[in-house]
Simulated assay, not measured.
Amino acid sequence: MIALNSENRAAIAARHPEIFRPSWRRRSMIVTGLGAAVGVFVFGIVQLDIPLNRLSDGIFMLGGFLRLMLPPDPGSWALALTCLHALGETLSIAFLGTLGGALLAFPASLLAARNVVANRIIHFLARRSLDTVRGVDTLIWALIWVGVVGLGPFAGILALVCSDFGTFGKLFSEAIEAADKKPVEGIQAAGGNHLHGVRFGLLPQVIPILLSQVLYYFESNTRSATIIGIVGAGGIGLQLAEQIRVLEWQKVSFLILLILVAVSAIDWMSSRLRFAIIGRRAIA
Rank of each mutant, 00 (worst) to 15 (best):
R67W: 07
L4N: 02
V149F: 14
L260A: 15
L55W: 05
A14F: 14
S56L: 10
V231R: 00
F20V: 15
L55A: 09
S224I: 06
I187Q: 01
L151D: 14
E219V: 01
A105M: 01
P17N: 12
V206C: 02
A284L: 15
L151V: 10
P51Q: 11
L211E: 05
A189L: 11
I230V: 15
D137K: 13
I50N: 14
A105T: 00
I19C: 03
L84T: 00
E18Y: 05
A282I: 05
I209K: 08
T82G: 12
P153D: 11
V136W: 07
C83F: 12
I59F: 06
L84N: 00
G101P: 08
I256H: 02
L4S: 02
R281A: 15
G197I: 09
N221C: 12
L110S: 11
F65C: 06
R9F: 11
L255S: 00
G169P: 04
R15M: 07
L210A: 14
V148E: 09
G166M: 04
Q243M: 12
V214K: 14
E7W: 06
T222Y: 02
H16R: 04
D73E: 11
S220C: 04
G35L: 13
A225I: 01
E177I: 06
W145H: 03
L211H: 03
N8K: 10
Q243C: 04
M1D: 07
F218W: 04
D131P: 10
A3H: 08
A276P: 03
G101T: 09
A105F: 00
D267W: 09
R27M: 06
V263E: 04
P51R: 12
S253H: 01
I228R: 08
T132Q: 09
M29A: 13
A126F: 06
G201C: 07
V46H: 07
G44V: 08
L104P: 03
A178I: 03
A155G: 09
L258C: 04
M269H: 01
F60Y: 09
I19A: 07
F95D: 05
Q239M: 08
A276Y: 15
T90K: 01
Y217A: 10
A36R: 02
I93Q: 03
R54L: 14
L111Q: 06
M269I: 13
D49R: 09
P51K: 11
S264I: 10
V206F: 03
I266F: 05
H194F: 08
G35H: 08
S220F: 03
V148W: 07
L255F: 01
F168R: 00
R120Y: 10
V31P: 10
F172H: 02
L203A: 06
T82A: 12
I93K: 06
A80R: 02
F124W: 11
L139R: 04
L260G: 11
A155V: 11
E242P: 00
V261S: 14
S173T: 11
W268C: 06
N53K: 15
K170W: 02
L211C: 11
S253E: 01
I256E: 02
V214W: 04
L110D: 01
A118C: 05
G101E: 03
G237N: 04
L87K: 00
L130C: 13
T138G: 03
A108I: 07
P107N: 10
Q213T: 15
G237D: 01
G44A: 10
R281I: 05
G191I: 15
L62G: 11
T32S: 14
R15N: 06
F20I: 14
A276M: 11
A241M: 10
L70R: 02
S76F: 06
